Computed example of a mutant assay.
Amino acid sequence: MTDAARRFRRLDLTVRRRVDGLLQGDVDGDALGPGTDPEELTLYRPGGDVRRIDWNVTARTGAPHLWRTRAQHELETWLLLDRSPSMAFGTALTEKADVAEEVAAAVGLLTAGVGNRVGVGLLDAAGLHWLAPRPGHAAAAALTRLAAAPREGGVPVPLADALRGLGARARRRGLCVVVTDLVVPDGRIERPFEWEGPLRRLTARHDVLVVEVDDPRERELPDVGEAVLVDPETGAQREVSTSDPELRLAYAMVAARHRDQTAAAVRACRAEHVRVATDQDWTVALARFVRDRGRTHRRRTRRTR
């Protein structure tokens, strides 16, 4: 068995044991039709499906009524995976790029179902390229077999343009998942970010999940004396003294500000947001999201009924 095959099998077992059961199955369509969830109560007409008669309403009104259901269709998922050089960083258990690829593959496994398909966009220093939609297990397997992305160089396609490309390909209502560190080349930490507009337009039609990946050293600067920091995307270097407590405090404050601003931006775009990190078990964060989203969906379903 190859390393990629072992990695995929291990990931499959992890997902089945810890986070399975959220994204499988059908999603609501845009019209009434074959489905299971009640949507509209109407008078019975000859030829109607007698199995959908609401006997309580029929008894109260004296006229037969039945439920028309909202159409359901197979789930179409599109993944945008950020593999830019800023993702090739990690000071804990692994690098951000590795966590991102595993999360993306896990989404493929979670959405596996009859008729469901997953398309993938890969954003790296070579540009933006797409993997054709395929069944969830096949998409997850392909993600575990990816060759390493370039670790240096600028990214010719900004995240905002990649999101526009995602919207152009995701034509049918479904699920869009963006896995990224939300780090922009110009170092902007304050809103508005250029990617907000495209993300907002994406959420107008699709369910959108943004998975933000970070590393503990991006939140706090350790005291390791003199250090040379290098931007992998621009090649810019800066020598700093990490023993300076004021510098470390300023760094932590800027990092915290960036996290607050990105969270506010994602929330304002009406997308769902999950944070994972290289020093933590990403399955815990994903499992928590699965549980909370499932509860929200059940509450909404009860209200519509």
Rank of each mutant, 00 (worst) to 15 (best):
R45L: 14
G33T: 04
L175K: 01
V155Q: 08
H206L: 08
L229G: 06
C176W: 02
G29D: 08
W195A: 10
T91G: 10
Q72H: 12
T69Q: 13
A104V: 09
R259N: 00
A142M: 11
V254W: 11
T234D: 06
E194M: 03
G119S: 08
A277R: 15
S86M: 05
A63Q: 15
E246Y: 04
A147F: 00
A268E: 14
R270I: 00
R205D: 08
R238D: 06
L166Y: 03
V155G: 05
E74F: 10
T296L: 15
L110F: 00
R117I: 05
R302M: 11
D244Q: 02
L41M: 14
G154V: 00
T91D: 04
H129E: 08
D215C: 08
G90D: 02
W67V: 04
P216H: 04
V179E: 06
L80F: 11
E226Q: 13
V230Y: 05
V99T: 12
A285R: 11
D124N: 14
L247H: 09
L199V: 07
V178N: 09
R188D: 12
E102T: 01
T42F: 01
E212W: 11
A100T: 07
A138I: 01
F193N: 10
E272G: 03
A227T: 06
G235A: 09
T2S: 15
V120N: 05
S243K: 02
R171T: 15
R134C: 10
A264V: 03
L221H: 04
G153N: 04
G127A: 05
K96R: 14
P34S: 07
A236L: 13
E102P: 00
A63Y: 07
A160G: 06
L80H: 11
L143R: 03
A268V: 06
V284F: 09
E246T: 02
V57I: 13
A252T: 08
E76K: 09
A147V: 04
R164S: 07
W78M: 12
L182I: 05
A287M: 05
L22C: 01
V228E: 15
